[in-house]
Design a protein around this nucleic acid. Structure first.
Length: 113
DNA sequence: TGCCTGACAAATA
DNA sequence: GTATTTGCCAGGC
């Protein structure tokens, strides 16, 4: 497959969009599940360029389980607010209580489409 | 065409 | 637990 940049972007969006409420995922994990291992930065770029209000980008964190955006930024505040609204505890930019989505493979590519 | 930057990850100190 | 370094790839200039 050609794996064009546009396709890669769509795949990443698809994975992020399929993250269940209350669960979180890392950029590297998202990229891997999207079929793009090692393209964590691409996932970050896609989220930064995304314009879909229905996209749960706030469920995407760094590998350390920390918020990617700089504390104090509007995006940071928004992400924290949304995570807390989903039952996720966020302390000092760190996510607590949230569990890494495991069986997303079936949730994303398995079902219906 | 070539260099720099970036919502990153993993390894090391 | 944090701070630093290296590697990777895509986009912008």
């Amino acid at each position: 497959m050609t794996t064009s940049a546009a396709d890669s972007r769509e795949r990443i969006l698809r994975v992020v969009r399929s993250i269940p409420r209350g669960q979180v995922l890392g950029y590297g994990e998202v990229a891997r599940r999207a079929g793009l291992p090692g393209r964590a930065r691409l996932a970050a770029r896609v989220l930064s360029e995304n314009d879909d209000p229905k996209l749960p980008w706030h469920r995407v964190l760094r590998s350390d389980g920390r918020i990617a955006l700089p504390a104090g930024s509007p995006g940071f505040d928004l992400q924290v607010a949304r995570l807390r609204a989903e039952g996720v505890t966020v302390i000092e930019g760190r996510v607590r209580g949230a569990r890494p989505a495991a069986d997303l493979d079936e949730l994303v590519w398995g079902p219906p489409r």
